[in-house]
């Protein structure tokens, strides 16, 4: 599946990994601990407020800072279906792909979205739809190699296949 429909949660530029999941919570990598502390300092009680499938729409350089995979995991465990950003910080981008959190880079298109808007994202086709305004935008698609990892579900499954000689 590569299509996601949900309600927008809009955040700004340079949302760093300390804001996504603060280091004080990193002594415990359990899904529940990550979920409940996700984005706590940006949107208080985010984990309780969001509905499964909601979509995070962020500004520039989303996920900058540390390499902690706990950041995309926390977002995934909250039930966010997909992250749309103007741009992503490098390690966050890899981590999201590696753990199977759908993401898409869309540049200035993020400006069209506000909290609570309805959005549809087709990650494979690179198509974003603003369902309230009825507008459609084209974004970048992933290169084939990364699509293979995405198709396998995550990097673990991809490596498993490689180890077995299936890829």
């Amino acid at each position: 599946m590569s299509k996601y429909i949900g309600k927008v949660w809009r955040v700004g530029d340079d949302i760093d990994t300390d804001l996504i999941i603060a280091a004080r919570h990193l002594n415990d990598a359990s899904p529940e601990n990550l979920r409940k502390n996700c984005l706590q300092d940006v949107i208080p009680d985010f984990a309780e407020k969001i509905s499964k499938g909601d979509i995070l729409v962020a500004g520039k350089n989303f996920g900058c800072g540390s390499s902690r995979e706990h950041a995309p995991l926390a977002i995934k465990h909250c039930g966010v279906s997909c992250v749309v950003a103007h741009s992503f910080a490098r390690i966050f981008y890899r981590n999201a792909i590696n753990i199977g959190l759908p993401i898409i880079t869309v540049g200035d298109v993020v400006e069209a979205f506000q909290d609570g808007d309805s959005i549809e994202v087709d990650v494979n086709q690179g198509i974003i739809r603003h369902l309230d305004k009825g507008q459609e935008y084209q974004a970048e698609t992933f290169p084939p190699f990364i699509q293979e990892i995405i198709a396998a579900g995550n990097l673990v499954n991809y490596v498993k296949k490689r180890v077995k000689g299936d890829v």
Binding site: E69, I91, R94, N95, N98, N154, V159
Partner: peptide
């Protein structure tokens, strides 16, 4: 360069 934990796992394996 910095990577994530799953990247590290894949590198440890392969």
């Amino acid at each position: 360069t910095g990577v994530g934990s799953t990247d590290l796992a894949a590198a440890m394996a392969t």
